[in-house]
Structure formats: structure tokens, C-alpha cells
């Protein structure tokens, strides 16, 4: 049985790598991928705690998070394709036109 501290370390590191990717890259698709990475780090911790506490609710939550992530990626990538058609790039630093 692996101590739960190891899983906390693992998912914290994965979540921080996701945050790093969101702050580090300018390509909007990679930013999306890093958001997926953060969602997966949280999912992993939910599954581990659900297994530890013998409670299936956590795993059901992970199931719903996966459904929401699929919807989010579909809508986000559609918006991204539209932005690419307008501006001919996926650079997120260009998208400051809402600035007052």
C-alpha cells in the first residue's frame, strides 16, 4: 500500500506543472492542454482519497469532471478555431482587444 503522501506530492507536482504551462506558453492550444493536466491532477487525488476512505462518491465526481472537461474542450477548441480565422494566429497575447 502506497502512502497517501506520495499521491499528494504527485498530484501537487502535476498541478503545478499545469499552472507553469498556463503561465509559460503563448500558444493557446498548449494552454488548453495544461488546463487538462490540472484537471487530471485533481482527478487523481479525488480517486486516491475515494479509495482511502472507501467512499465511491469521489469516483462519481471524477466521472462528472470528465464529462465537463470533454464539453469544455469541445467549446474551447471551436472558439479557438474561430479566433484563428479572425487573427491568423493562436497567440494569447494578441487577444487583448477587450481591454478598455
Amino acid at each position: 500500500m502506497i502512502p497517501i503522501d506520495n499521491y499528494i506530492w504527485l498530484s501537487t507536482v502535476l498541478f503545478s506543472i499545469g499552472v507553469l504551462g498556463v503561465l509559460y506558453r503563448r500558444n493557446a492550444i498548449i494552454v488548453f492542454a495544461c488546463i487538462e493536466l490540472m484537471l487530471n491532477a485533481v482527478n487523481l487525488l479525488l480517486v486516491v482519497f475515494s479509495n482511502q476512505l472507501n467512499d465511491p462518491t469521489g469516483q462519481v465526481f471524477v466521472f462528472f469532471i470528465m464529462a465537463v472537461a470533454a464539453a469544455e474542450v469541445a467549446v474551447g477548441l471551436a472558439i479557438l478555431v474561430m479566433i484563428y480565422r479572425k487573427t491568423k494566429s493562436v497567440d494569447i497575447d494578441i487577444l487583448n482587444q477587450l481591454k478598455g
Binding site: 500500500m1 502512502p3 497517501i4 503522501d5 499528494i8 480517486v47 475515494s50 479509495n51 482511502q52 476512505l53 472507501n54 467512499d55 465511491p56 469516483q59
Partner: peptide, 14 residues
């Protein structure tokens, strides 16, 4: 500081 709770090994909730 998360506490390790005693679990039944080989639980089948998943």
C-alpha cells in the same frame, strides 16, 4: 499533514 486512514486492502468500490 494528511492522516493515513486504515483501509481494507483490495476494496472493490472502483
Amino acid at each position: 499533514g494528511t492522516m493515513q486512514t486504515a483501509t481494507k486492502s483490495g476494496s472493490e468500490i472502483g
